[in-house]
């Protein structure tokens, strides 16, 4: 139900244009990877989808992003409502300085769930979903900072799932993790893609090739090419894409 249709998206930071006329339809479910050299606008793009760019004062957005046919940037749209339906996982694990339990219960609570039992169920379900439950079930009241980096990132994934989103955005979720923790996250992405529309920014082309169903290549703020992962990596249509994936471009 949750395809993302991006129509002529332009984003500026002050006078500097970070995204230029991006048109793209991300179908529902499955994993869509965003690749491209540093500074090409990957983060800016993914942060447009849950309107996180709104918190940057110098940022200006123009264009449409339709989710289920509704424009996220339309008049009268409540930003917090948009974010409530889209989960996000960041580059560095950023759990709250609270207990493991409180990290997950935070969002349901501010969105009105007060019932202890219900909160407990949400916490368990999300932690299971993020493949973390067995590792932490005996110490839910311990600080999230006592977890390893990889566990913290899975906790952040569980936290993103706590709002029951249909879309989950990942901005380079493995760039601060070691290979083993990365593999665990990738396994997890595989698990999630049947139930969520996953969009992941990655610097790592092997990672995109491994996990993504579709891949989009951005360059200098423009969407250069978007297609099935195998097609994009094996038979890229654009020369820029080819240069990038063959390593002839930073």
């Amino acid at each position: 139900m949750s395809s993302i249709e991006v129509n002529n998206l332009n984003v500026w930071f002050d006078d500097k244009q970070a995204l230029k006329g991006v048109n793209m339809t991300i179908p529902e479910k499955g994993i869509t990877a965003i690749i491209g050299p540093s500074g090409c606008g990957k983060s800016t793009f993914i942060r447009s989808i849950n309107r996180m760019n709104d918190i940057i004062p110098s940022c200006r957005v123009q264009g449409q992003i339709l989710v289920d046919g509704k424009d996220l940037y339309g008049p009268g749209v409540d930003v917090t409502q948009v974010r409530k339906n889209i989960g996000m996982v960041f580059q560095r694990p950023n759990p709250f300085p609270k207990s493991i339990y409180e990290n997950i219960a935070y969002a349901p609570r501010i969105h009105g769930t007060r019932d202890k039992k219900k909160l407990g169920e949400i916490v368990e379900r999300c932690l299971r979903r993020a493949a973390l439950w067995d590792e932490v079930k005996d110490r839910l009241d311990k600080s999230a900072y006592d977890l390893s980096g990889g566990q913290q990132q899975r906790l952040c994934i569980a936290r993103a799932l706590s709002i029951d989103p249909e879309i989950v955005l990942f901005d380079e979720p493995c760039s601060a993790l070691d290979p083993i923790a990365t593999a665990k996250i990738e396994d997890l992405l595989e698990e999630l893609k049947d139930d969520y529309t996953v969009v992941i920014v990655t610097h790592n082309m092997q990672q995109a090739a491994r996990v993504a169903d579709r891949t989009a290549f951005f360059y200098l703020g423009e969407l250069i090419e978007f297609g099935d992962t195998s097609q994009l990596f094996e038979r890229p249509e654009n020369e820029l894409t080819e240069n990038y994936i063959t390593g002839r471009m930073g």
């Binding site: 960041f90 950023n94 709250f96 936290r159 993103a160």
Partner: peptide, 10 residues
């Protein structure tokens, strides 16, 4: 930390 909170719809 703030971003994490905003991203959850807070």
């Amino acid at each position: 930390l703030r971003e994490a909170s905003y991203a959850l719809g807070a």
